Amino acid sequence: MVAERTDVAAIVASAGSTNAGVIDDLAGCADVADGLGAWLHVDGAYGLAAMLLPELRDRFAGIERADSFIVDPHKWLFAPVGSCALIYRRPELASAVHTQHGPYIDSIRTGDDVFNPSDLGYQLTRRASGLPIWFALALHGVEAHRAAIRAGLRLAEAMADALDVCPETELVMRPELSVVLFRRHGWAAEDWRVWAANLLQRGTAFVAPTTHRGEPVGRLVFMHPLTPASLVDDLIASLTARG
């Protein structure tokens, strides 16, 4: 059925969805894209930073077949807000689509072999937003970034384990990365709102509840490498408090 489709221009897969941290079957998506002759783009804005960890590389198998992918250094690579890396397999195709022309632009072009980031996206004027992540990597090194990502993964696993054994709570799914989705038995959307507001007021955590397939659920994201392990106990206590 899929191979018979003629109206598919592109397939967008997720390498760590923002809401749940789910990683799509990238190799399977690549197979479908190849069969359709479609462009495969992978949205790794949040999760693809985890590819820095050798032990997680296999979760992203198939990323090498993408026509393009993104990762936002301002998310899990701890860069200032506003940085996004967009990578193309064949930059010349992107250039053919995005290059803009005008007398004031063409007059400064010196040849087709000159790299111009403005030819790879629709935005002409932009800040040098790649500089902060380059500087951080040059100063701290890749291993420091790997250690920071691992810290978030460890806390997410610890939180998931604690929720799994707590009688009042239930995991929606085991975390693939550092996002933990869970239920609190008997709670509706208003209960989640009040819980999150109380956590913020007490300075415990900033939590944004969400929905999963229409159901209000809790959502915790562990990213900051200096988050104390004691936060897990604090959150469990807040979920089991009476009155």
Rank of each mutant, 00 (worst) to 15 (best):
Met1Ile: 11
Met1Asn: 07
Glu4Asp: 15
Arg5Met: 08
Asp7Ile: 08
Ala9Pro: 02
Ala9Ser: 08
Ile11Asp: 14
Ile11Cys: 14
Val12Gly: 04
Val12Trp: 08
Ser14Ile: 06
Val22Thr: 15
Asp25Met: 09
Asp25Gln: 01
Ala27Gly: 09
Ala27Ile: 09
Ala30Glu: 04
Ala30Thr: 04
Ala30Lys: 05
Asp34Thr: 15
Gly35Met: 08
Gly35Ile: 05
Leu36Met: 14
Ala38Ser: 09
Val42Tyr: 12
Val42Asp: 13
Asp43Phe: 02
Gly44Cys: 06
Leu48Tyr: 10
Ala49Arg: 06
Ala49Gly: 07
Ala50Met: 04
Met51Val: 00
Leu52Gly: 07
Leu53Trp: 15
Leu56Asp: 09
Phe60Asn: 13
Ala61Gln: 14
Ile63Trp: 01
Arg65Ile: 02
Ala66Leu: 00
Ser68Leu: 07
Trp76Arg: 13
Leu77His: 02
Cys84Lys: 09
Ala85Met: 13
Leu93Gly: 10
Ala94His: 07
Ala96Leu: 04
Val97Leu: 15
His101Arg: 14
Pro103Asp: 14
Pro103Arg: 15
Ile105Phe: 14
Ile105Gly: 04
Ser107Glu: 11
Gly111Gln: 00
Pro117Met: 09
Pro117Ala: 10
Pro117Leu: 11
Leu120Gln: 09
Leu120Tyr: 12
Gln123Trp: 08
Arg126Phe: 06
Ala128Trp: 07
Ser129Thr: 14
Ser129His: 07
Leu131Phe: 10
Leu131Met: 11
Ile133Arg: 03
Ile133Phe: 05
Trp134Lys: 15
Phe135Thr: 12
Ala136Ser: 00
Leu137Pro: 06
His140Ala: 13
Val142Asp: 08
Arg146Glu: 10
Ala147Met: 04
Ala148Ile: 02
Arg150Ile: 01
Ala151Gln: 05
Ala151Glu: 06
Leu153Gln: 05
Leu153Cys: 05
Ala162Arg: 00
Val165Tyr: 03
Thr169Arg: 00
Glu170Arg: 02
Leu171Ser: 07
Met173Gly: 05
Met173Arg: 11
Arg174His: 15
Arg174Lys: 15
Arg174Leu: 15
Val179Asp: 14
Val179His: 11
Val179Gln: 13
Leu181Asn: 11
Phe182Cys: 08
Arg184Gln: 01
Arg184Ile: 06
His185Leu: 03
Gly186Glu: 07
Trp187His: 05
Ala189His: 11
Ala189Lys: 14
Glu190Gln: 03
Asn198Cys: 06
Leu199Trp: 05
Leu199Gly: 06
Gln201Arg: 13
Arg202Lys: 15
Gly203Asp: 12
Gly203Tyr: 07
Phe206Asn: 01
Val207Thr: 08
Thr210Cys: 11
Val217Gly: 12
Val217Ala: 13
Val217Pro: 05
Arg219His: 06
Met223Arg: 09
Met223Ala: 14
Met223Gly: 05
Thr227Pro: 12
Ser230Pro: 09
Leu235Pro: 04
Ala237Asp: 08
